[in-house]
Nucleic acid binder design. Sequence first.
DNA 1: CGCCTCTTTGAACATGGTCAAATAACGTGG
DNA 2: CCACGTTATTTGACCATGTTCAAAGAGGCG
Lengths: 257, 257
Amino acid sequence: VTEPSQRPVPTDAADVPLPESHALIAKLERSVGLTDEDRGTLAGVMSQRRWVSSQVDLIREGDRPESVFLVTRGFACRYKILVDGQRHILGLLVPGDTCDLHVAILNRMDHSIAALTACEIVEIPRSTIVDLTSNHPRIAQALCWATLVEQGILREWLTNLGQRGADQRMAHLFCELLLRLQVVGLAGETGCFLPLTQVHLADILGFSIVHANRTLQHLRFLGLVDLKHRHLKVPNLARLRNFCSFNPEYLHLSRRA
Amino acid sequence: VTEPSQRPVPTDAADVPLPESHALIAKLERSVGLTDEDRGTLAGVMSQRRWVSSQVDLIREGDRPESVFLVTRGFACRYKILVDGQRHILGLLVPGDTCDLHVAILNRMDHSIAALTACEIVEIPRSTIVDLTSNHPRIAQALCWATLVEQGILREWLTNLGQRGADQRMAHLFCELLLRLQVVGLAGETGCFLPLTQVHLADILGFSIVHANRTLQHLRFLGLVDLKHRHLKVPNLARLRNFCSFNPEYLHLSRRA
DNA sequence: CGCCTCTTTGAACATGGTCAAATAACGTGG
DNA sequence: CCACGTTATTTGACCATGTTCAAAGAGGCG
């Protein structure tokens, strides 16, 4: 089950909703004006897709990165394994997210990336990235923008772990994910497909599994969220955001003024 | 005391050691081969320096960034203030560190940056950054590299908060800082100037002040570190690193193979 | 000398972790 | 379609870690 294959379209792929045709393009478009030519270039790059099974590592800590991965369907995560065996999840990749530019510049991965569900991905070779950044300035800028947004998310997660209590920490994560998924058309007003188990939540938020369970139950009890069977429900988004003082500025979604 | 001035050379400036003439160049040099011309260009950019007093904000959350700051002497930090008034420190800037490329691309700052000590800084206008990235590909790459390294540090801090207990969390921070300061010639084998109060440590590590104090005392008792009067002593680095399983890979210090 | 900030201490309290075990849902093969 | 093994969720009791509150020293600077 942990082997990538040519075209598994695995059992849980049916659950994975289809995003807008080109979530990445839509996403980059928010930051930088792309020309039709840019859009064509990107569409060309993204034409070679393949499926990867759930649980498969796309790249591992210590590897020398040779290509950038772009997730077009499904969910993936960045993670590290500590010496005591604990896994810490450092970030989530949703459709339209790229595995940044490590590849073009850094020597070795300082973390791993794994598919959380079956994922449809595009593997962009180093050479293509070099070409994009050299000959397509707007695309280069857009990719750089994506990296900075990811950095903003990292900082927010850092304060989430450092300063917020359990309930608000988890609520904040749900606020972020719902919004990020709405942006790429994968979430409605009140909920979305979200394939995170309580184990994942624990590894993201720095909880024990037991505590992740109790915190989730508490949010459920408060009527703020419900996560069951890989589906997140948020009956009242304003109330949830208010509960954890969610401020979406750090996602840099608003168009350049 | 919170006003910037023309040339204060403030009282605590005498404590701030002088780094190698061009810490930034030395730093960038580690990642990407620079030409003599590149070095000349950078030296030119860095010729306009000014002093900023301790406690002064270089830029604030919500501001539209107009220039990049480079710290040439002294210490600064990135931080956010939460709704409950708590401050969380998101990163430290030591001599040779830049305030990344937010400026060139993002609309608004999602965090603030403040001087922790009196700082000598270079303020690089947006236009210069645009010029550097357009006309000096190696410098552009080096700046991008710096951003990725900072991202690596953010991820390590994230797992630090998420997974490690108090003692190891603090020990890990000291390992990182000692190494980063050694790289720019501001630390010896067994110690360095480090102007962090226990309040700062608490705001970095997500502790209460009381707990920061007790944790520091415990590390002192174990003979691992001593931080007093703005000076960090590490009698036995190997033992300290072993204590917290410090792995410096995430700082990407080794030259490209 | 006197104010200020930083450090240190103790005791009660809160939050979250650990261990162990039961229940429920899922996925596979018969 | 059902039986079974596996993984995910849930529960309770006890324990560990870190927080809060309050107050007392220490050090630095004017």
